[in-house]
Design a protein around this nucleic acid. Structure first.
Lengths: 180, 180
DNA sequence: ATTTAATGTAATGATATTGGTTACAACCGT
DNA sequence: ACGGTTGTAACCAATATCATTACATTAAAT
Protein backbone atom coordinates (compact mmCIF):
# COMPACT_ATOMS: atom_id res chain seq x y z
CA UNK A 1 0.00 0.00 0.00
CA UNK A 2 0.93 3.60 -0.52
CA UNK A 3 1.36 6.11 2.26
CA UNK A 4 -1.84 8.13 2.44
CA UNK A 5 -2.27 11.57 0.94
CA UNK A 6 -2.67 13.00 4.44
CA UNK A 7 1.09 13.34 4.40
CA UNK A 8 1.32 15.44 1.23
CA UNK A 9 -1.73 17.41 2.35
CA UNK A 10 0.07 18.20 5.59
CA UNK A 11 3.15 19.33 3.68
CA UNK A 12 0.93 21.47 1.48
CA UNK A 13 -0.52 23.05 4.62
CA UNK A 14 2.92 24.01 5.90
CA UNK A 15 3.90 25.48 2.53
CA UNK A 16 0.70 27.53 2.45
CA UNK A 17 1.28 28.72 6.00
CA UNK A 18 4.64 30.05 4.93
CA UNK A 19 3.44 31.77 1.78
CA UNK A 20 0.22 33.24 3.17
CA UNK A 21 0.76 33.25 6.91
CA UNK A 22 2.17 36.76 7.04
CA UNK A 23 -0.75 38.41 5.29
CA UNK A 24 -3.75 36.16 5.72
CA UNK A 25 -5.45 34.16 8.40
CA UNK A 26 -4.81 30.46 7.75
CA UNK A 27 -8.21 28.87 8.25
CA UNK A 28 -9.27 25.39 7.25
CA UNK A 29 -11.56 26.91 4.62
CA UNK A 30 -8.69 28.85 3.16
CA UNK A 31 -6.50 25.77 3.00
CA UNK A 32 -9.30 23.65 1.61
CA UNK A 33 -9.45 26.10 -1.28
CA UNK A 34 -5.78 25.67 -2.14
CA UNK A 35 -5.63 21.93 -1.62
CA UNK A 36 -9.13 21.30 -2.94
CA UNK A 37 -10.27 18.77 -0.43
CA UNK A 38 -13.08 18.97 2.08
CA UNK A 39 -12.58 21.29 5.04
CA UNK A 40 -13.13 18.47 7.51
CA UNK A 41 -10.23 16.56 6.02
CA UNK A 42 -8.10 19.64 6.63
CA UNK A 43 -9.41 20.08 10.15
CA UNK A 44 -8.70 16.47 11.05
CA UNK A 45 -5.16 16.68 9.73
CA UNK A 46 -4.63 19.96 11.55
CA UNK A 47 -5.88 18.28 14.72
CA UNK A 48 -3.22 15.63 14.30
CA UNK A 49 -0.53 18.24 13.70
CA UNK A 50 -1.74 20.14 16.76
CA UNK A 51 -1.75 17.02 18.93
CA UNK A 52 1.81 16.36 17.81
CA UNK A 53 2.80 19.84 18.96
CA UNK A 54 3.74 21.05 15.49
CA UNK A 55 1.19 23.84 15.03
CA UNK A 56 -1.06 26.01 17.15
CA UNK A 57 -4.67 26.50 16.12
CA UNK A 58 -6.91 29.26 17.50
CA UNK A 59 -10.47 28.23 18.27
CA UNK A 60 -13.17 30.80 17.76
CA UNK A 61 -11.00 33.40 16.09
CA UNK A 62 -9.55 30.85 13.71
CA UNK A 63 -6.15 30.56 12.09
CA UNK A 64 -3.03 28.47 12.55
CA UNK A 65 0.65 29.09 13.08
CA UNK A 66 3.78 27.06 13.69
CA UNK A 67 4.41 25.87 17.23
CA UNK A 68 8.15 25.51 16.58
CA UNK A 69 10.79 26.99 14.36
CA UNK A 70 10.60 25.71 10.77
CA UNK A 71 14.02 24.05 11.13
CA UNK A 72 12.70 22.05 14.06
CA UNK A 73 9.80 20.45 12.20
CA UNK A 74 11.01 17.55 10.07
CA UNK A 75 9.12 15.59 7.46
CA UNK A 76 9.43 12.66 9.83
CA UNK A 77 7.61 14.56 12.57
CA UNK A 78 4.83 15.31 10.12
CA UNK A 79 4.72 11.76 8.84
CA UNK A 80 4.43 10.32 12.32
CA UNK A 81 1.77 12.88 13.23
CA UNK A 82 -0.61 12.16 10.37
CA UNK A 83 0.08 8.60 9.30
CA UNK A 84 -1.42 5.77 11.32
CA UNK A 85 1.40 3.21 11.42
CA UNK A 86 0.53 0.39 13.76
CA UNK A 87 3.27 -0.14 16.39
CA UNK A 88 5.40 2.29 14.40
CA UNK A 89 6.21 -0.57 12.03
CA UNK A 90 6.27 0.17 8.32
CA UNK A 91 5.98 -3.49 7.37
CA UNK A 92 2.96 -5.50 8.37
CA UNK A 93 3.88 -9.03 9.43
CA UNK A 94 1.80 -12.15 8.85
CA UNK A 95 0.25 -13.01 12.18
CA UNK A 96 0.64 -16.74 12.78
CA UNK A 97 3.86 -18.26 11.54
CA UNK A 98 3.85 -21.89 12.66
CA UNK A 99 5.97 -22.39 15.80
CA UNK A 100 6.28 -26.08 14.95
CA UNK A 101 8.19 -25.18 11.83
CA UNK A 102 11.83 -24.14 12.17
CA UNK A 103 11.29 -21.39 9.64
CA UNK A 104 8.01 -20.29 11.18
CA UNK A 105 9.40 -19.91 14.65
CA UNK A 106 12.53 -18.08 13.47
CA UNK A 107 11.07 -15.83 10.81
CA UNK A 108 10.71 -12.84 13.11
CA UNK A 109 14.26 -13.16 14.42
CA UNK A 110 15.38 -13.46 10.83
CA UNK A 111 13.51 -10.50 9.37
CA UNK A 112 12.98 -7.95 12.12
CA UNK A 113 16.46 -6.46 11.99
CA UNK A 114 16.50 -6.25 8.21
CA UNK A 115 13.06 -4.68 8.02
CA UNK A 116 14.07 -2.20 10.70
CA UNK A 117 17.14 -1.27 8.67
CA UNK A 118 14.97 -0.52 5.68
CA UNK A 119 12.50 1.49 7.70
CA UNK A 120 15.36 3.37 9.37
CA UNK A 121 16.83 4.31 6.01
CA UNK A 122 13.54 5.85 5.00
CA UNK A 123 13.02 7.64 8.30
CA UNK A 124 16.55 9.00 8.36
CA UNK A 125 15.94 10.60 5.00
CA UNK A 126 12.63 11.97 6.23
CA UNK A 127 14.41 13.61 9.16
CA UNK A 128 16.76 15.40 6.77
CA UNK A 129 13.95 17.54 5.33
CA UNK A 130 12.29 20.22 7.39
CA UNK A 131 9.61 22.84 7.02
CA UNK A 132 12.47 25.31 6.47
CA UNK A 133 13.33 23.46 3.25
CA UNK A 134 9.70 23.56 2.30
CA UNK A 135 9.59 27.32 2.85
CA UNK A 136 12.76 28.07 0.91
CA UNK A 137 11.62 25.83 -1.91
CA UNK A 138 8.14 27.21 -2.36
CA UNK A 139 9.36 30.79 -2.19
CA UNK A 140 11.95 30.11 -4.87
CA UNK A 141 9.41 28.42 -7.11
CA UNK A 142 6.88 31.21 -6.82
CA UNK A 143 9.61 33.77 -7.33
CA UNK A 144 10.95 32.24 -10.52
CA UNK A 145 7.40 31.68 -11.74
CA UNK A 146 6.47 35.38 -11.85
CA UNK A 147 9.73 36.20 -13.62
CA UNK A 148 8.89 34.13 -16.65
CA UNK A 149 5.17 34.08 -17.39
CA UNK A 150 2.78 36.69 -16.10
CA UNK A 151 -0.37 35.10 -14.70
CA UNK A 152 -1.07 32.43 -17.26
CA UNK A 153 -3.28 30.78 -14.71
CA UNK A 154 -6.29 33.07 -14.46
CA UNK A 155 -7.92 32.06 -17.72
CA UNK A 156 -11.65 32.16 -16.88
CA UNK A 157 -12.14 30.07 -13.78
CA UNK A 158 -14.35 30.37 -10.76
CA UNK A 159 -12.68 29.95 -7.40
CA UNK A 160 -14.00 28.81 -4.07
CA UNK A 161 -14.92 31.86 -2.06
CA UNK A 162 -12.00 31.61 0.27
CA UNK A 163 -9.60 31.23 -2.62
CA UNK A 164 -10.42 34.63 -4.10
CA UNK A 165 -7.91 36.10 -1.79
CA UNK A 166 -5.38 33.56 -2.97
CA UNK A 167 -5.90 34.51 -6.57
CA UNK A 168 -5.35 38.12 -5.66
CA UNK A 169 -2.19 37.10 -3.89
CA UNK A 170 -1.07 35.29 -6.99
CA UNK A 171 -0.98 38.57 -8.82
CA UNK A 172 0.77 40.51 -6.13
CA UNK A 173 2.23 38.26 -3.51
CA UNK A 174 5.42 40.30 -3.49
CA UNK A 175 3.62 43.53 -2.68
CA UNK A 176 3.25 42.17 0.86
CA UNK A 177 -0.06 43.65 1.83
CA UNK A 178 -1.11 43.35 5.44
CA UNK A 179 -4.78 42.41 5.43
CA UNK A 180 -5.23 40.94 8.86
CA UNK B 1 -0.71 2.76 5.74
CA UNK B 2 1.59 -0.14 6.29
CA UNK B 3 3.12 -2.23 3.57
CA UNK B 4 1.05 -5.39 3.26
CA UNK B 5 2.02 -8.71 4.76
CA UNK B 6 2.38 -10.15 1.26
CA UNK B 7 5.95 -8.91 1.46
CA UNK B 8 6.89 -10.76 4.65
CA UNK B 9 4.97 -13.81 3.43
CA UNK B 10 7.06 -13.76 0.26
CA UNK B 11 10.26 -13.54 2.30
CA UNK B 12 9.02 -16.43 4.43
CA UNK B 13 8.49 -18.44 1.25
CA UNK B 14 12.06 -17.88 0.12
CA UNK B 15 13.43 -18.84 3.53
CA UNK B 16 11.36 -22.02 3.50
CA UNK B 17 12.50 -22.85 -0.02
CA UNK B 18 16.07 -22.68 1.20
CA UNK B 19 15.57 -24.79 4.31
CA UNK B 20 13.31 -27.45 2.81
CA UNK B 21 13.96 -27.20 -0.92
CA UNK B 22 16.67 -29.81 -0.95
CA UNK B 23 14.63 -32.52 0.69
CA UNK B 24 11.00 -31.71 0.13
CA UNK B 25 8.72 -30.56 -2.64
CA UNK B 26 7.76 -26.94 -1.99
CA UNK B 27 4.03 -26.88 -2.64
CA UNK B 28 1.59 -24.14 -1.70
CA UNK B 29 0.03 -26.51 0.83
CA UNK B 30 3.38 -27.11 2.43
CA UNK B 31 4.10 -23.39 2.65
CA UNK B 32 0.62 -22.63 3.92
CA UNK B 33 1.38 -24.95 6.82
CA UNK B 34 4.51 -23.06 7.80
CA UNK B 35 3.12 -19.58 7.26
CA UNK B 36 -0.36 -20.46 8.44
CA UNK B 37 -2.35 -18.60 5.87
CA UNK B 38 -4.74 -19.91 3.25
CA UNK B 39 -3.22 -21.77 0.32
CA UNK B 40 -4.79 -19.40 -2.16
CA UNK B 41 -2.97 -16.48 -0.58
CA UNK B 42 0.25 -18.42 -1.09
CA UNK B 43 -0.62 -19.34 -4.65
CA UNK B 44 -1.42 -15.75 -5.54
CA UNK B 45 1.83 -14.48 -4.09
CA UNK B 46 3.75 -17.24 -5.87
CA UNK B 47 2.04 -16.20 -9.09
CA UNK B 48 3.35 -12.69 -8.58
CA UNK B 49 6.85 -13.98 -7.86
CA UNK B 50 6.65 -16.17 -10.95
CA UNK B 51 5.45 -13.31 -13.14
CA UNK B 52 8.37 -11.25 -11.88
CA UNK B 53 10.76 -14.01 -12.95
CA UNK B 54 11.98 -14.76 -9.45
CA UNK B 55 10.79 -18.35 -9.07
CA UNK B 56 9.70 -21.23 -11.26
CA UNK B 57 6.60 -23.19 -10.37
CA UNK B 58 5.75 -26.60 -11.80
CA UNK B 59 2.14 -27.12 -12.74
CA UNK B 60 0.65 -30.55 -12.30
CA UNK B 61 3.63 -32.05 -10.56
CA UNK B 62 3.85 -29.18 -8.13
CA UNK B 63 6.75 -27.52 -6.39
CA UNK B 64 8.74 -24.32 -6.72
CA UNK B 65 12.39 -23.37 -7.09
CA UNK B 66 14.41 -20.23 -7.60
CA UNK B 67 14.63 -18.86 -11.12
CA UNK B 68 17.87 -17.01 -10.33
CA UNK B 69 20.79 -17.28 -7.99
CA UNK B 70 19.94 -16.23 -4.42
CA UNK B 71 22.39 -13.31 -4.66
CA UNK B 72 20.48 -12.01 -7.66
CA UNK B 73 17.11 -11.75 -5.94
CA UNK B 74 16.94 -8.63 -3.78
CA UNK B 75 14.29 -7.65 -1.26
CA UNK B 76 13.48 -4.82 -3.64
CA UNK B 77 12.71 -7.29 -6.44
CA UNK B 78 10.39 -9.14 -4.10
CA UNK B 79 8.78 -5.95 -2.85
CA UNK B 80 8.05 -4.72 -6.37
CA UNK B 81 6.74 -8.14 -7.35
CA UNK B 82 4.16 -8.50 -4.60
CA UNK B 83 3.28 -4.97 -3.52
CA UNK B 84 0.81 -2.98 -5.59
CA UNK B 85 2.34 0.49 -5.63
CA UNK B 86 0.51 2.75 -8.04
CA UNK B 87 2.89 4.37 -10.55
CA UNK B 88 5.72 2.98 -8.45
CA UNK B 89 5.20 5.91 -6.07
CA UNK B 90 5.40 5.23 -2.36
CA UNK B 91 3.59 8.44 -1.45
CA UNK B 92 0.06 9.03 -2.60
CA UNK B 93 -0.50 12.63 -3.66
CA UNK B 94 -3.70 14.63 -3.20
CA UNK B 95 -5.36 14.79 -6.59
CA UNK B 96 -6.52 18.35 -7.20
CA UNK B 97 -4.26 21.06 -5.86
CA UNK B 98 -5.72 24.38 -7.00
CA UNK B 99 -3.86 25.71 -10.06
CA UNK B 100 -5.14 29.20 -9.24
CA UNK B 101 -3.15 29.16 -6.04
CA UNK B 102 0.60 29.70 -6.21
CA UNK B 103 1.14 26.96 -3.68
CA UNK B 104 -1.33 24.62 -5.35
CA UNK B 105 0.25 24.88 -8.76
CA UNK B 106 3.81 24.47 -7.43
CA UNK B 107 3.28 21.81 -4.80
CA UNK B 108 4.28 18.95 -7.10
CA UNK B 109 7.43 20.72 -8.25
CA UNK B 110 8.19 21.41 -4.64
CA UNK B 111 7.64 17.93 -3.23
CA UNK B 112 8.31 15.42 -5.96
CA UNK B 113 12.11 15.49 -5.67
CA UNK B 114 12.07 15.30 -1.90
CA UNK B 115 9.58 12.45 -1.83
CA UNK B 116 11.63 10.62 -4.45
CA UNK B 117 14.73 11.03 -2.28
CA UNK B 118 12.94 9.43 0.62
CA UNK B 119 11.60 6.59 -1.49
CA UNK B 120 15.05 6.07 -3.02
CA UNK B 121 16.63 5.80 0.40
CA UNK B 122 14.24 3.02 1.29
CA UNK B 123 14.63 1.20 -1.99
CA UNK B 124 18.42 1.43 -1.90
CA UNK B 125 18.36 -0.31 1.44
CA UNK B 126 15.96 -2.92 0.07
CA UNK B 127 18.37 -3.65 -2.75
CA UNK B 128 21.17 -4.33 -0.26
CA UNK B 129 19.43 -7.44 1.08
CA UNK B 130 19.10 -10.56 -1.03
CA UNK B 131 17.72 -14.06 -0.75
CA UNK B 132 21.31 -15.14 -0.06
CA UNK B 133 21.22 -13.12 3.18
CA UNK B 134 17.91 -14.74 3.99
CA UNK B 135 19.38 -18.19 3.45
CA UNK B 136 22.47 -17.57 5.52
CA UNK B 137 20.41 -16.03 8.29
CA UNK B 138 17.80 -18.73 8.61
CA UNK B 139 20.40 -21.50 8.52
CA UNK B 140 22.37 -19.83 11.30
CA UNK B 141 19.26 -19.37 13.41
CA UNK B 142 18.14 -22.95 13.05
CA UNK B 143 21.65 -24.17 13.68
CA UNK B 144 22.11 -22.26 16.91
CA UNK B 145 18.61 -23.25 17.98
CA UNK B 146 19.28 -26.99 18.04
CA UNK B 147 22.52 -26.43 19.93
CA UNK B 148 20.80 -24.91 22.94
CA UNK B 149 17.37 -26.43 23.51
CA UNK B 150 16.30 -29.78 22.15
CA UNK B 151 12.82 -29.59 20.65
CA UNK B 152 11.07 -27.44 23.14
CA UNK B 153 8.43 -26.84 20.54
CA UNK B 154 6.61 -30.15 20.20
CA UNK B 155 4.64 -29.94 23.41
CA UNK B 156 1.31 -31.53 22.45
CA UNK B 157 0.07 -29.81 19.32
CA UNK B 158 -1.71 -31.01 16.23
CA UNK B 159 -0.24 -29.87 12.94
CA UNK B 160 -1.76 -29.31 9.53
CA UNK B 161 -1.28 -32.48 7.52
CA UNK B 162 1.36 -31.03 5.28
CA UNK B 163 3.31 -29.74 8.26
CA UNK B 164 3.92 -33.17 9.72
CA UNK B 165 6.89 -33.45 7.50
CA UNK B 166 8.10 -30.09 8.77
CA UNK B 167 7.90 -31.24 12.35
CA UNK B 168 9.92 -34.26 11.48
CA UNK B 169 12.44 -32.01 9.81
CA UNK B 170 12.62 -29.94 12.95
CA UNK B 171 14.00 -32.92 14.76
CA UNK B 172 16.47 -33.91 12.14
CA UNK B 173 16.98 -31.23 9.58
CA UNK B 174 20.74 -31.77 9.69
CA UNK B 175 20.43 -35.44 8.81
CA UNK B 176 19.61 -34.34 5.27
CA UNK B 177 17.23 -37.08 4.22
CA UNK B 178 16.19 -37.20 0.61
CA UNK B 179 12.46 -37.89 0.59
CA UNK B 180 11.47 -36.72 -2.87
C1' DA C 1 -25.63 39.87 25.12
C1' DT C 2 -25.99 38.66 20.50
C1' DT C 3 -23.92 37.80 16.31
C1' DT C 4 -20.49 35.90 13.50
C1' DA C 5 -16.90 33.18 11.98
C1' DA C 6 -14.21 29.62 13.22
C1' DT C 7 -12.74 24.98 15.21
C1' DG C 8 -13.57 20.10 17.00
C1' DT C 9 -15.71 16.05 16.29
C1' DA C 10 -19.33 12.58 15.64
C1' DA C 11 -21.82 10.04 12.27
C1' DT C 12 -22.54 8.21 7.82
C1' DG C 13 -21.41 6.67 3.31
C1' DA C 14 -18.69 5.48 -0.99
C1' DT C 15 -14.77 3.27 -2.56
C1' DA C 16 -10.65 0.52 -2.42
C1' DT C 17 -7.60 -2.91 -0.50
C1' DT C 18 -6.48 -6.72 2.20
C1' DG C 19 -6.97 -11.18 3.55
C1' DG C 20 -9.98 -15.48 3.75
C1' DT C 21 -12.57 -19.03 1.55
C1' DT C 22 -14.90 -22.07 -1.81
C1' DA C 23 -15.01 -23.74 -6.24
C1' DC C 24 -13.34 -25.49 -10.31
C1' DA C 25 -10.73 -25.80 -14.68
C1' DA C 26 -6.11 -26.97 -16.31
C1' DC C 27 -2.03 -29.52 -15.85
C1' DC C 28 1.08 -33.50 -15.62
C1' DG C 29 3.44 -37.45 -13.75
C1' DT C 30 2.14 -42.22 -12.55
C1' DA D 1 -7.83 -42.45 -16.13
C1' DC D 2 -6.35 -41.01 -11.48
C1' DG D 3 -4.35 -38.12 -7.91
C1' DG D 4 -2.07 -34.36 -6.51
C1' DT D 5 -1.17 -29.82 -7.77
C1' DT D 6 -1.40 -25.13 -9.80
C1' DG D 7 -4.04 -21.06 -11.65
C1' DT D 8 -7.86 -18.17 -11.11
C1' DA D 9 -12.42 -16.56 -10.67
C1' DA D 10 -15.96 -15.33 -7.48
C1' DC D 11 -17.52 -13.85 -3.30
C1' DC D 12 -17.18 -12.20 1.52
C1' DA D 13 -15.61 -9.76 5.82
C1' DA D 14 -12.88 -6.40 7.78
C1' DT D 15 -10.47 -2.29 7.50
C1' DA D 16 -8.77 2.30 5.75
C1' DT D 17 -9.26 6.31 3.05
C1' DC D 18 -11.57 10.15 1.65
C1' DA D 19 -15.95 12.86 1.33
C1' DT D 20 -19.80 15.02 3.39
C1' DT D 21 -23.40 16.70 6.63
C1' DA D 22 -24.40 18.16 11.04
C1' DC D 23 -23.83 20.42 15.20
C1' DA D 24 -21.81 21.75 19.69
C1' DT D 25 -18.12 24.82 21.17
C1' DT D 26 -15.23 28.72 21.12
C1' DA D 27 -13.95 33.67 21.12
C1' DA D 28 -13.72 38.04 18.92
C1' DA D 29 -16.53 41.90 17.32
C1' DT D 30 -20.52 44.58 17.37
Amino acid sequence: MQISSRFTIALHIFAAMDVFGKNYKITSDFLAGSIQVNTVIIRNIMSQLRNAGLIKVSRGIGGAELAKEPEEISFYDIYVAVESIEDGKLFRFHKNPNPECPVGRNIHLLLDDMLDDIQDAMEREMKRFTVADLNGGIEDLIGSETETTENQADAGSELPKSMDVVKETTESHSRAKAEI
